[in-house]
Design a protein around this nucleic acid. Structure first.
Lengths: 148, 148
DNA sequence: CAATACCCGTATTATAAATGCTTATTTTGC
DNA sequence: GCAAAATAAGCATTTATAATACGGGTATTG
């Protein structure tokens, strides 16, 4: 049971943008800071832009910028929308289900409740909460390093 | 984010054994009822036996039998022990971690809390709870069908 | 002794993620 | 106004991992 790296990278991108909100940040910058493939990051940026969470600007001085307030976006929301498959077991998806116990199976309900407990715990955490110690993060990001 | 089928099949096996506790149940029977590969099920049975949750008996009249009381085993326990990878993101595993934000990253703590909420919700559910409506399950399992 | 059923290690297959490449669009500078 | 450069967006390929299938081995019963 693990989160897809897609969601993971999306959260890292949002965290960075929440820390460096001044100018637009290029995907290349994000790629360098996080040590993640450029093209892979571009793909996640695309998904974030589609949902209106970030603004993308093309051209010579383009890049990514947060389009919403960090306190308005929760980790739970991000994962609910971006995680490609939240069906813990096959019977969660009626189309793929092969288990004929479903009618009387209480396991499914228990797992549903547990998943909801997981997500609602993350609903309590906003992007603003994640970056509350901005100085420490900026140090790790290398933001504010005067020397080239 | 989804559970491995390994854990899934293990839980189904335990549920069946909790419903049919009289004689030993062969892996072949379990395979037929659930429509799952024989060898794959045998592998999960092995893991259950190693933990003392079931007894296996070889030979002509052999099979699997529950070795503990259904109310003493929780779903949470099963998943904690059997799920091969509960590391939601790479930074949960220091050996595989490449993210250099770890020291100041609050995301990890949020995810840890959420995972614990998920598992503790499942700790509240015992195997006995899952099979409380035994007649309905036995009907689905085909247990008690007089006609051949 | 023969048949049945669990035990264990290996190999193949399938699926999904990660990466790389190509195309299209925008902006800046001449 | 045009050309060049930078960047986003979309598409295809490679890679890795998990699930599954298979074979031989061992123990037990009748």
């Amino acid at each position: 049971m693990q989160l897809s790296r897609f969601s993971d990278y999306a959260l890292r991108t949002l965290m960075y943008l929440a820390c460096a909100p001044d100018g637009p940040t290029s995907v290349g910058q994000l790629s360098q800071v996080h040590g993640i493939s450029f093209h892979h990051l571009a793909k996640t940026a695309q998904a974030l832009a589609q949902r209106g969470w970030i603004e993308t600007r093309r051209g010579r001085t383009g890049g990514l910028r947060l389009a919403i307030s960090p306190s308005d976006l929760t980790v739970g929301r991000v994962i609910r929308e971006l995680e490609p498959n939240l069906a813990l077991v096959e019977c969660f998806d009626p189309a793929k289900n092969h288990c004929n116990l479903s009618p009387a199976c209480l396991l499914k309900h228990s797992l549903s409740r547990a998943l909801e407990a997981f997500l609602s715990e993350l609903d309590r955490v906003s992007l603003a909460d994640l970056v509350q110690d901005r100085p420490a993060l900026n140090r790790l990001y290398g933001i504010g390093e005067g020397a080239a």
